[in-house]
Design a protein around this nucleic acid. Structure first.
Ligand SMILES: [Zn+2]
Ligand SMILES: [Zn+2]
Ligand SMILES: [Zn+2]
Ligand SMILES: [Zn+2]
Lengths: 152, 152
DNA sequence: CCATTAAATGTTATGTTATAACATAACTTA
DNA sequence: TAAGTTATGTTATAACATAACATTTAATGG
């Protein structure tokens, strides 16, 4: 069983547990995300979708699938770059209490890493102390240069 | 001296110290940001700019001014909503080692608050341990409901 | 199984956000 | 004042995202 198949199987199980439907179209978009080396824009994904699955697809098709996948935590949206990627932790379900994305401005690679537990609680505490009630766990997008690009 | 005048004076001094130019146009956009109650989209600012300062202004005018102000740390861009606002800490120069924006999805208000020092160092440590070198201090956008909206 | 409802997809059009490219003007510095 | 740099003016278009409505497919209950 390949890596993508394994992740896809986890994603399917997640959907069953949540009582939501992993339709063929959504699975196809998920597959596109999984087979990419890095984050992709919605229109890049649309182009690939048209090539691989359905030549006359329109933007709403992609945006709907992406919205679904993001809602289910199977994919993430990087708002600082308008890009989408598959969650890197679907099979290890550590949860997303706080997630940091390290975006390399040099090579475009993105690394997803869980926020340290103490950092999360520090944040939550300061947020709570202001009477603010969060509706989603925070995603932090940090720009810079990745380890690989720093060597070269 | 009014609040906006005081902030504007600080901003001007900042620019002098940095050897960059606070031109009339940039000052006007800064003024627009300062007189708003909340964050604004670039096109909202453009409309106001056209009304108040220059009726034939075009998008690049606003985007250039905003880019400048953001680069100088005098304004911030909220990438999750495509909005811009004046920095709330221009006069108190505490730095921006880490900043949290609490965005109320109910009333649209945004509260800018410094990230707790320990949370910042936790973050930095985990980022550094991956060999990643940041090029900007992290801005965290947290969505939810503000204290005021929670009461009602 | 069939009728009803709900969810998903198809389709057209348009709204919103942002930048490329090149011309001109204004400042800076020697 | 000449040369170089920075900022602005202007036109056009690229890039990102959604509204609105029609149609199809799936789920539910008799
Ligand atoms: Zn994830
Ligand atoms: Zn890199
Ligand atoms: Zn600030
Ligand atoms: Zn509110």
């Amino acid at each position: 069983m390949s890596r993508t198949d394994r992740i896809l199987a986890s994603a399917e199980q997640h959907c069953r547990e949540q009582g939501v439907r992993m339709t063929p179209q959504r699975r196809q978009v998920m597959m596109l995300l999984l087979t990419q080396s890095g984050p992709q824009s919605a229109y890049q994904l649309l182009d690939q979708f048209k090539t691989q699955y359905q030549s006359n697809a329109q933007p709403p098709t992609i945006y709907r699938a992406l919205d679904f996948l993001v809602q289910q935590g199977l994919a993430h949206r990087l708002s600082s770059t308008n890009q989408y990627l598959a969650c890197d932790h679907i099979t290890c379900h550590h949860g997303h209490q706080g997630t940091v994305f390290l975006l390399c401005d040099d090579c475009g690679a993105v690394q997803e890493t869980p926020m340290a537990g103490s950092a999360i609680s520090e944040l939550q505490q300061s947020i709570n102390s202001l009477g603010f009630v969060t509706q989603q766990n925070p995603l932090l997008e940090v720009h810079g240069r990745c380890a690989n690009c720093n060597v070269h």
